Simulated scan of single mutants.
Amino acid sequence: MEDLKKWMKNNWFTVIFAVLLVVLLVSPDAKAWLMRQMASAGILNSNISESTTSQIPSIDFMVKNEDGTTINTADLKGKVVFINFWASWCPPCRAEFPSIQEFYEKYRNHQDIVFLTVNLDDNPGLGKAYLKQKNFTVPFIIPAGAIPKELYNGSLPTTVVLDKKGRIRLHHQGLADYSKDSFYTQVDELVNGKL
């Protein structure tokens, strides 16, 4: 026992580092916190492009909200559509969700912006429970059919922004921070037809 105490005293940094590493490996919230710190530094941010990444005039993608109402993205022309594909078990999704919530709070009443936060949990109840646990108020949406490959190819999280003509203007796979003023400026320019 004395040898263990002596070893821990001499290797305290290693012990603390090992404990932190175990916590990061085991806890999805700890992973999300670390990723959120990296995203807030601006390392992982994405930009809305001036030119479209797709010449498809509109994306036909069907989703359902919590009330069971079906929404087709092709019917949302004239609006900027923010689509985020996520799952409750996904640490990068958890990391970026606070920024999506902040973005949603800022623009939730804007008549020209639609939020489709599409949950891809095998059991949608897990996604609902996660939103409730974290007090997120973003719309809970699930797919109502096949997801076009132009929007999502299996990488979580994936975020897509469609312009008012239904063209893809942002397609970002992985973690990003959507609560930055620079992103808000781009969204405003997109809504006002300046981008």
Score class of each variant (00 low, 15 high):
Asn72Met: 06
Val63Tyr: 08
Ile16Arg: 08
Val15Met: 15
Gly68Ala: 02
Arg167Val: 02
Gly78Cys: 10
Lys180Ala: 14
Asn135Asp: 14
Glu102Ser: 00
Trp7Pro: 14
Ala146Arg: 14
Met62Lys: 09
Lys164Leu: 05
Leu116Ser: 00
Val191Met: 14
Ile100Gln: 04
Ser179Gln: 08
Ser182Gln: 11
Ser99Asp: 05
Thr158His: 11
Gln133Ser: 12
Ile147Cys: 02
Gly193His: 09
Gln173Leu: 03
Lys165Gln: 06
Ala176Val: 04
Ala95Glu: 13
Asn47His: 10
Pro139Arg: 07
Thr158Gly: 07
Pro143His: 09
Lys194Thr: 10
Lys6Tyr: 04
Lys149Met: 07
Phe17Glu: 11
Phe82Gln: 12
Asn45Glu: 11
Trp33Cys: 02
Phe13Leu: 15
Arg36Leu: 05
Ile48Met: 02
Phe140Leu: 11
Lys5Asp: 04
Glu2Gln: 15
Asn119Val: 03
Met38Cys: 05
Met35Thr: 06
Phe61His: 01
Ala144Leu: 13
Leu25Pro: 07
Ser40Asn: 14
Gly166Thr: 01
His172Trp: 01
Leu162Val: 10
Ile56Thr: 14
Tyr152Gln: 06
Gln55Cys: 04
Ile168Glu: 01
Ile59Leu: 06
Leu25Met: 09
Pro57Ser: 11
Pro92Cys: 13
Asp3Phe: 13
Asp75Thr: 06
Tyr152Glu: 04
Leu4Ser: 08
Leu24Gln: 07
Leu170Asp: 04
Pro148Met: 12
Lys194Tyr: 14
